[in-house]
Amino acid sequence: MKNPILKAMLLVVSLFFFSNFVAAQKATQKVVIKTFLHCDHCKECETCGQKFKTEMLKIKGIKMYELDEKAMTFTIYYNAKKTNLQAIKQGISKLGYDADEVKANAEAYESLDGCCKA
């Protein structure tokens, strides 16, 4: 490239896209939330499994989640610009599950299958 103006414009455009990429990466946060599962098959359960598949990603800001049944934890990847940790915990509570110190919503807990309750 012999044209210095073209080089400068290309550099500015590249920096713009790179900075937006970096900003988007910083907005994504990861958190591990302790829960309590009463059965060993929650992911496959007719009630719980469907709730996880359809409702977890409806909680504002959650991009992805993983449920570790053995460790009884949710690993949540979320957009920190759209939500915060407390809102996520409240959302999990509304599904009928504990989320760290936030206890499960009683009404939502009662709607779970019998095998998923203590």
Results as ranks from 00 to 15, higher is better:
Lys58Thr: 05
Asn79Lys: 04
Glu110Leu: 07
Lys63Thr: 02
Asn84Val: 04
Thr83Ile: 09
Asp98Ser: 13
Val102Lys: 01
Val13Ser: 14
Ala87Glu: 14
Lys70Asp: 11
His41Cys: 08
Lys34Thr: 12
Leu67Trp: 03
Leu37Met: 10
Leu11Thr: 12
Lys7Ser: 11
Val32Thr: 14
Lys7Pro: 01
Leu15Ile: 12
Ser111Asp: 12
Glu55Arg: 12
Glu46Met: 06
Glu107Ser: 15
Met72His: 10
Tyr77Gln: 06
Gly49Asp: 04
Leu10Gly: 01
Pro4Trp: 10
Asn105Ala: 12
Glu44Leu: 05
Ala87Thr: 05
Gln25Ser: 07
Glu110Cys: 08
Gln90Pro: 00
Tyr97Asn: 05
Gln25Arg: 15
Gln25Lys: 11
Ile62Thr: 03
Ser19Asp: 13
Tyr77Lys: 08
Ala104Lys: 07
Ile88Met: 01
Thr83Lys: 06
Phe17Val: 10
Lys34Arg: 07
Gln86Asn: 11
Leu6Ala: 10
Ile92Arg: 01
Lys58Val: 01
Asp113Glu: 11
Gln25Glu: 10
Lys81Gly: 09
Cys42Phe: 04
Ser14Phe: 14
Ile5Phe: 13
Phe52Gln: 03
Lys117Asp: 07
Ala71Met: 10
Glu55Ala: 15
Ala118Gly: 03
Lys51Ser: 07
Ile88Val: 02
Lys43His: 07
Tyr65Glu: 04
Ala23Gly: 11
Phe16Gln: 08
Phe18Asp: 06
Asn20Phe: 13
Tyr97Gly: 09
Ile33His: 02
Gly114His: 05
Glu66Asp: 14
Gln29Ser: 07
Glu101Cys: 05
Lys89Ser: 01
Pro4Ala: 06
Val102Gln: 02
Val22Met: 09
Lys51Gly: 04
Lys60Glu: 07
Phe17Tyr: 11
Val12Gln: 09
Glu101Trp: 00
Thr47Cys: 11
Glu55Gln: 12
Gln90Asp: 14
Glu55Met: 08
Ala99Leu: 01
Phe18Glu: 07
Asp100Ile: 05
Asp40Met: 11
Lys117Leu: 15
Lys51Trp: 02
Asp113Gly: 15
Phe18Met: 15
Met9Ile: 13
Ile88Trp: 00
Leu57His: 02
Phe74Asn: 00
Lys89Val: 01
Thr75Gly: 01
Asp68His: 09
Tyr77Asn: 05
Leu67Met: 12
Phe21Thr: 10
Val32Ala: 09
Phe16Cys: 11
Lys94Phe: 06
Glu110Asp: 12
Gly96Leu: 02
Leu85Lys: 13
Ala24Met: 08
Asp113Trp: 04
Glu46Phe: 14
Lys63Val: 01
Gln90Cys: 01
Leu112Glu: 11
Lys30His: 07
Ala99Glu: 02
Ala87Leu: 08
Thr83Leu: 06
Ile76His: 04
Thr73Phe: 05
Ser19Leu: 10
Val31Tyr: 06
Gln86Thr: 09
Gly61Trp: 00
Asp100Val: 05
Tyr65Lys: 02
Ile76Ser: 10
Met9Tyr: 03
Leu57Thr: 05
Pro4Ser: 07
Asp113Leu: 06
Ser93Lys: 04
His38Gly: 13
Val31Cys: 03
Tyr77Glu: 07
Met9Thr: 13
Lys117Ser: 14
Lys2Ala: 09
Tyr65Thr: 00
Ala8Ser: 13
Thr47Tyr: 08
Lys53Val: 08
Asp40Arg: 13
Ser93Thr: 05
